[in-house]
Simulated scan of single mutants.
Amino acid sequence: METLWYLAKLALALVLGMGSAQLLGKERFTRVSAYAQTCLVWLLLFFMGVNTGGIDGITSQFRTIGITALLITFFAVAGTILVSLLFSFILTPSLRSEHIAIAKRKEQSFIRRLYDIIKEPLILVSIVILGLLLRLGTDAFSWFESSLVTYLLYVLLFFVGMGMVHRKIRFKGVFADKSIFFLPLYTILGTYVGALGVFLFTPYTLSQVIGMLSGFGWYSLSGILITDLGYPVLGSISFLSNLMRESVSFFLIPLFGRLGKRYYYPAVCTAGATSMDVTLVLLSSHFGMRTMVGSIYHGVIMSLVAPLLIPLFF
């Protein structure tokens, strides 16, 4: 019952944000909403580091956290690729759909592409590490209460809801195209198939592994949410794993783009929730602009289900 009430409050925050944007006007407060989301994510990640630093014996677990995050990332991505390819052959055996096209693209230098890939992840990881070090090395956050994270999370989801309305996303035609409509299902199923492999090589329960993977690339939310649920170590693993998933997708999307139309499905499913924003340009540049609606639809659905699925497994 407690989990359902928690889910209801998260959903309510999201719906209130969407309703507020509708009432205030879709063109108003767009920048405010975007800046608020960025600032809140940074603040929440900082406090996530602070919270993790307060765990007894946490310094002895750093190596385990990193190895586990790498392991579950590998299995989640592998499962997603296999399942999305399998279902693409079942539902569209001849790939007659015309919405996918291998687009011509201008190649950037390796240094520039590498910089674009690592810039944001480095900033976010640095914020978490800063909070962790300040908690471990000083008494500045002896006042900290984990309940603060809960309230900030509600505010973040409120602005996420506003942002969804501001994007003016329309899914006309998506529901008639089964190959696109079922993309989120491929991602969820493939990720959870990968979780079965992780379960065999780690001490965590299958439920915990699935919960950690249920961010689907939305690393900031997954880490914060799991930490808020009372599992700061698992929150740190989930944060790193979903961050790695996004980073890996930057390398895999161009590769899939060179392999052909069929590989749009594993490309967008590997990207997870980021297919509507961070990896959207990369997906459209390698598979054609007409895939943009499908990529946005997939990312929006994954972003909606992530905060609802994660609490179910803890």
Rank of each mutant, 00 (worst) to 15 (best):
H99L: 02
P121R: 10
T191H: 11
L240H: 02
A11R: 11
E27R: 15
Y297T: 04
I127D: 11
S207E: 11
G163W: 01
A195R: 06
G57L: 04
L304N: 08
I72E: 09
I127W: 08
M276L: 10
L156I: 04
F158Q: 08
V278G: 03
I123M: 13
R245Q: 14
S97L: 02
R245N: 08
I180H: 07
M164S: 05
I296Y: 02
T38D: 06
I127S: 11
A140H: 14
V233W: 03
L91F: 12
G235T: 06
F175G: 14
A140S: 14
I301L: 15
L148H: 06
A8Q: 05
D56R: 15
I301C: 14
Y231I: 06
F29A: 14
T80M: 01
T150P: 01
H166L: 06
I72P: 01
F313C: 12
F29T: 02
G66Y: 06
G163F: 03
S60Y: 03
I102N: 12
R245V: 01
G163Q: 05
I81D: 12
A36P: 00
S285G: 04
I296L: 15
A101P: 00
V128Y: 11
L7K: 04
L136R: 14
L196F: 13
L132V: 00
L16S: 09
I129Q: 08
L14S: 11
L132G: 05
S303R: 07
G211W: 03
G260H: 10
I224P: 01
L7I: 07
I117K: 14
L309N: 05
I301W: 05
I65N: 02
A267L: 02
F201T: 10
S84V: 00
D277K: 10
A11G: 08
G190H: 08
G260D: 08
A140M: 13
D228Q: 13
K106E: 11
Y264N: 09
Y219C: 08
L189T: 13
A76K: 04
L148R: 01
F251N: 09
E246W: 03
L189C: 09
R290F: 08
T279V: 05
P254S: 13
L213R: 08
G217A: 06
S222A: 13
S249T: 06
G235R: 03
T38V: 01
R28C: 00
N51Y: 08
M212E: 05
I301D: 09
A36I: 02
C269D: 13
I253H: 05
Y231A: 15
I72G: 01
P121A: 10
F251E: 07
L152K: 02
F47G: 01
L183F: 05
A101L: 03
V32L: 15
M1F: 04
R245T: 02
G66P: 00
A103D: 11
K104A: 13
L152F: 11
H298N: 15
H166K: 13
L71D: 05
M244Q: 09
G194F: 07
S179A: 15
R113I: 00
S222V: 01
T30F: 02
V15S: 07
S247W: 06
P184W: 10
I90K: 09
